[in-house]
Design a protein around this nucleic acid. Structure first.
Length: 692
RNA sequence: GGGGCCAUAGCUCAACGGUUAGAGCAGCAGACUCAUAAUCUGUUGGUUCCAGGUUCGAAUCCUGGUGGCCCUACCA
């Protein structure tokens, strides 16, 4: 029996935002796995698509005053470009807003209906008359019915922790329109997933399909009790597909998103003259692998298998779940410049770096991984440039005239040893334990460098001019080195496709199969050597972070003076304005009462025990000092503030706080938490100057 | 409030319950000069977060704590 085909997917990125370094963990993990399978000769396709439906897209399209279709088309183009820039190679990249997806949704829905799993229930929600839409909890704000704190979200109160229905909020306000919403009831359609409890129990616990920690998690939680009905419909208006037997209702975005895997495969089948059923309705022929992040575990391990099972599609052979990305040990942060878009990265750095770095950190467990820039620079420089590429760099030029030896010389068993390790490396790749694979490969690179040192080709070269014997020895030694290098390039090909391609060109023998690591290359010309990879320039890393640091709502500082004039004035949405409508009009005298002053931060300290506060010491010039407690801890490092200018409300009555007396406030915008943006005077302003 | 994951050398990570807990990087001392200030040799460095427990034997298993990250909200 021949080997089964493999169909691989990554989660579909949402069309509401750009790809960033966090997304790339998944797409690179998957791309490496797919490239590995292909290199090993397996028939394998990599399928993905944009996830395009839902309220968020609808709202955003309205704000930008374009049609949803335009919005998702633009975003899809940006996504495709970003992925291409990182050498992520999809066999098909579709969209959930496609005729194929609508068709697949219809098919699966029909099966779910026929299995008697759908039931209708009434759901009460707040309705925004102005915007003409129902409001999800996070689109409503109001006063907490328990503790009366203003400005709380529709589901619970951040101040007192109370939970409530959005309908219970006092003075509810829609964050979309600023208007007062009313209570409305609508019929929703639910899938009674509990009817598949037995099947899900069996499927999640049988081993193989899920990592053990995931199986245990599901067994200990969701599967311990009856599964709750899943609300899969949303009343109009909603950007998505209308449910055929329930006019006015649309499928919830999480219903049609995973079906996009099938639809995108369908697109690929049409282009390649293949039959969809061979890929999705024939478990003997095809195994399906999903790569996802741990945040969307239950959609892919409960709802999705339930849908597939009911409609007669292949169940996933395995759902590979990975952790999150942190940067420098913390959650990505826009104000710290660690929320880095894929496109920003590509403006500054080589994608190979990130591919290798992630590979060197990724194991098969669902631990989070950390991108630490010092570590990043060190790893690339020492592993890739210092060890791997250096092998070719230090020997290739000795072979430019002679080429590789006609017969592979005695190398003391080095090539054979690394060949034998090939299976261990392959096993590590196959089980997604890339960090292990990288460790084995680097150990082989160390042995090869040691060999070069021992053989001293540079010394042999000096004697080679008038000795045929030494000439042959030089050729042999360097042939060994280049072969050891090429062997590594084959092993690294899934991670570093560009290096593999360059190596193929250098030795006039394209790298296309894993088996090429098992036998040395002989009697081949060697091209003129050119640098295969540059060391990481720390200045470019710093520039990338600077370019990612948002100083004000949605704006980035320009990197250099030349870039200071933007090509176009960016279009800003009115979401912030809607979220916090204008206050009532005031007279000039009212404004003049507030004495705003330029101040310099001369000290900034952590406040022990406080979650949000930093203690700032401000100078208004001379010896005029103020102590101000500011709620900006989650957005700023104290050390970054010292020395900079801020604007301070200087005639505010002192206020006694838990941690001391605050003698003023500093001026900042943003919703709070890590999204706080201090206002900064332009250069030239001096502490003590009044703001008029 | 409930739950999950994690904690090992300065940094990033290894180590089926089984010798004296190992690598790479950084550091220190030397060698070399072919190579992109690359490479090679030697070497410093650990109360495996803390406190108990199970065991002939614990970084590993159990209980409790501490800290970090995340999920979820009268639910799992």
């Amino acid at each position: 029996m021949s080997e089964r085909r493999i169909l691989v997917t990554s989660a579909l990125p949402y069309a509401n935002g750009h790809i960033h370094l966090g997304h790339l963990v998944e797409y690179l993990q998957t791309d490496i796995w797919v490239r590995f399978q292909k290199l090993r000769g397996r028939r394998c396709i990599y399928i993905c698509a944009d996830d395009t439906h839902g309220t968020a897209i609808m709202i955003r399209a309205r704000q930008e005053e374009i049609r949803e279709e335009e919005l998702i088309a633009e975003m899809r183009e940006a996504h495709v470009k970003d992925f291409g820039g990182f050498d992520i190679e999809f066999d098909n990249y579709g969209s959930t807003h496609s005729p194929e997806n609508r068709q697949a949704c219809h098919e699966i829905w029909k099966a779910v209906r026929e299995a008697g799993l759908v039931r209708e229930k009434k759901v009460t929600q707040l309705y925004d008359l102005t915007a003409g839409t129902f409001l999800a909890d996070r689109f409503v704000k109001g006063t907490c019915p328990k503790c009366k704190s203003p400005d709380q979200y529709g589901d619970n109160c951040e101040k007192c922790g109370a939970h409530y229905d959005p309908a219970e909020l006092i003075d509810p306000v829609s964050t979309l329109s600023g208007g007062t919403p009313e209570i409305r009831t609508a019929d929703h359609l639910f899938i009674e997933i509990e009817k598949l409890h037995g099947f899900l129990e069996e499927w999640t616990q049988r081993g193989g399909a899920l990592q053990t920690e995931v199986s245990n998690y599901l067994a200990g939680h969701f599967l311990q009790e009856p599964l709750r009905d899943w609300d899969v419909s949303r009343p109009a208006p909603y950007f998505g597909f209308e449910i055929p037997d329930s006019p006015g209702n649309y499928w919830y975005v999480w219903f049609d998103a995973p079906i996009g895997y099938i639809a995108s495969t369908h697109e690929w089948c049409i282009k390649h003259g293949e039959k969809l059923d061979d890929w999705w309705k024939n478990e003997k022929l095809t195994e399906v692998h999903h790569f996802i992040g741990k945040d969307i575990t239950y959609f892919h391990t409960l709802f999705w298998p339930a849908m597939l099972k009911t409609a007669g599609f292949n169940l996933p052979e395995k759902v590979h779940i990975h952790g999150f990305l942190t940067v420098n040990g913390e959650k990505m942060s826009k104000s710290k410049g660690t929320f880095i878009r894929a496109s920003t990265y590509l403006d500054h750095l080589d994608p190979s770096y990130l591919r290798y770095y992630y590979a060197s950190k990724l194991g098969s467990a669902l631990d989070d991984i950390d991108l630490n820039f010092d570590d990043f620079i060190g790893k690339i420089d020492s592993d890739l440039v210092g060890k791997v590429v250096n092998l070719a760099s230090r020997t290739a030029r000795f072979l430019e005239t002679s080429g590789l030896s006609a017969a592979y010389p005695d190398d003391g068993g080095l090539f054979a040893q690394a060949s034998e390790e090939g299976e261990a490396i392959a096993e590590a790749y196959n089980s997604c334990d890339y960090s292990k694979a990288m460790r084995i490969i680097m150990a082989a690179a160390d042995r090869a460098n040691k060999y070069v040192d021992e053989q001293k080709p540079w010394a042999v070269a000096k004697e080679a001019a008038n000795s045929a014997e030494k000439q042959k020895l030089l050729q042999d030694v360097c042939s060994v080195c280049l072969n050891l290098f090429r062997q590594l390039a084959v092993y690294l090909a899934p991670v570093l496709p560009k290096l593999a391609r360059q190596t193929g060109e250098l030795l006039d023998d394209p790298i296309i199969a894993w088996e090429q690591s098992q036998s040395p290359l002989t009697a081949k010309p060697v091209r003129k050597f050119e640098h295969l990879m540059q060391r990481v320039d720390p200045k470019r890393v710093a520039a990338m972070i600077a370019a990612s640091t948002e100083t004000a709502y949605g704006e980035k500082p320009s990197e250099t003076a030349e870039d200071a004039v933007p090509a176009t004035i960016p279009f800003d949405t009115d979401a912030p304005l809607l979220a916090e409508p204008l206050a009532e009009q005031i007279a000039f005298d009212d404004f003049a009462k507030v004495d705003l002053r330029v101040a310099r931060v001369v000290a900034a300290d952590d406040v022990e025990g406080a979650k949000k506060l930093l203690k700032l010491t401000l100078s208004l010039g001379g010896n005029h000092r103020r102590t101000v407690f500011a709620g900006i801890k989650e957005a700023y490092d104290p050390q970054d503030l010292v020395g900079r200018l801020v604007v301070c409300a200087a005639n505010l009555a002192p206020r006694k706080m838990k941690f001391g007396v605050s003698e003023g406030m500093i001026v900042a915008s943003g919703p709070g938490g890590s999204e706080v943006y201090l206002l900064a005077p332009d250069p030239g302003a001096r502490p003590g100057q009044r703001v008029h």
